[in-house]
Structure formats: C-alpha cells, structure tokens
Simulated assay, not measured.
Amino acid sequence: MKFTELSNTIFSNVIEDYHKTDNVDTPVSNPFEVKTIEYYLYLKNWIDTVQWHLEDIIRDPQIDPVVALGIKRRIDKSNQDRTDLVELIDSYFLDKYKDVIASPEAKINTESPAWAIDRLSILALKIYHMEQEVNRPDASESHREQCQKKLSVLLEQRKDLSEAITDLLGDIENGHKYMKVYKQMKMYNDPDLNPVLYEQKGK
C-alpha cells in the first residue's frame, strides 16, 4: 500500500471515529501501537479534527468571551501539538531514507513530506464536511449543488496531492531529491522569545 493510501484510510477512519460522539472533549482512542507511523498519523488527524470543531465553536457570535478565550488558548496548544507531530512524521522519513545517497543533481522540495501529509489530513476534513453539506436534508437544492461542485474539486485535489506526495517520496528514495527538517521555532509560545511573556517575567 502506498503511504498516501495508508494516510487517507487512517484519516477517514479518524473522522468517522470522532463523529461517533462529535464532541471536542472526547478522549482519543488510538488503535495503533504507540510510536508507530500509523499511531502518529491517527493522532495527527485526531488533533486536526478536534481543532476543526473548536474553530467552528469559537465563531459562534453569541459565545461568552471567557469561553472564547479558553478555546483560543486550546487552539494555540493544538497548533503546537500539530507542529510537533509533523516534525515527528518527518523524522520517520529521515530515518527511513537515511542511507540513501542523493545524486549531485538532487534538489530539495518546497515542503517536507510531512507538511504535505498535513495538507492531506486537512483535505480529508474538508471532504467529509463538504459531503455533509451535499447531503444536508434541510439545505436548498442550490446549496447542495454548489457544495457538490466544491466537493468534486476537493476530491480532485486529494487525488493530485496524493500523487504528488507519492512522487516526492519516490524521488527521495531514489536520490533525485533530498529532505531537511526545519524546526518551526514558533516564537509566540516561547516565554524567552515572546516580548509580552518575557517582559512579564521581568516584573
């Protein structure tokens, strides 16, 4: 099975698992062995799925500001967890291809494999929720038709992105491309780099 086929299957299963309760506080029940690539893929999409719904909740115009602040901080934490998992998945690829000798003509890609997988995870969520709109019984016919057009584009995008990731992994495996992992170094979460935080420490 291609890596993208594995990823897409796991992502679809995660989204179905989440919607058994459709509750952002449902604890993750990861069926895979800890520290396997399948485990990381499942956890990655679970984080994305919960965050997707937190983003919906926080846009409620009637939301209590205190509740909204709590959700905003939860989203910030989720973004950091998401970034950490992407770097873990890239570490998997680095280890897998560590013995490959890149050709002198090899070039680096614009994004690492795991960041492309991150996009695939988000696409799975877009597809699921667009399908929900296509089949929404209380929606107008024109709404469903417009959503069907958008769904067709999303499905084509997933096909194209899956093929591009497969090609990238093949190029890395064959030494035609090489990869690096750049730590994201998010500054706003770091008490030594965010001036609002380190100025508070000095008081």
Score class of each variant (00 low, 15 high):
residue 164 A to R: 06
residue 189 N to Y: 13
residue 135 N to P: 04
residue 194 N to W: 11
residue 159 K to P: 02
residue 179 M to A: 03
residue 63 I to G: 05
residue 64 D to R: 09
residue 6 L to A: 10
residue 157 Q to S: 11
residue 57 I to Q: 14
residue 87 E to M: 07
residue 30 N to G: 07
residue 33 E to A: 13
residue 198 Y to Q: 03
residue 136 R to K: 14
residue 138 D to E: 14
residue 85 L to A: 02
residue 75 I to P: 00
residue 152 S to G: 01
residue 13 N to G: 08
residue 119 R to T: 04
residue 169 L to E: 10
residue 146 Q to K: 07
residue 85 L to I: 09
residue 165 I to R: 00
residue 74 R to Q: 11
residue 170 G to K: 01
residue 36 T to A: 08
residue 75 I to T: 09
residue 92 Y to W: 12
residue 94 L to Y: 06
residue 200 Q to S: 10
residue 186 K to R: 12
residue 8 N to D: 10
residue 117 I to C: 00
residue 91 S to I: 08
residue 16 E to F: 07
residue 74 R to W: 09
residue 97 Y to W: 08
residue 105 E to K: 13
residue 57 I to T: 13
residue 32 F to P: 01
residue 109 N to W: 07
residue 32 F to V: 11
residue 107 K to P: 02
residue 35 K to A: 10
residue 54 L to V: 06
residue 143 H to I: 12
residue 147 C to G: 06
residue 170 G to F: 01
residue 68 A to Y: 06
residue 50 V to S: 02
residue 4 T to H: 00
residue 168 L to E: 08
residue 90 D to F: 02
residue 142 S to R: 10
residue 197 L to V: 13
residue 71 I to Q: 05
residue 33 E to T: 15
residue 167 D to V: 07
residue 176 H to D: 09
residue 175 G to D: 11
residue 158 R to Q: 15
residue 129 H to I: 06
residue 180 K to R: 12
residue 73 R to N: 14
residue 38 E to Y: 04
residue 180 K to Y: 14
residue 158 R to L: 01
residue 179 M to S: 06
residue 72 K to C: 02
residue 132 Q to E: 15
residue 27 P to S: 08
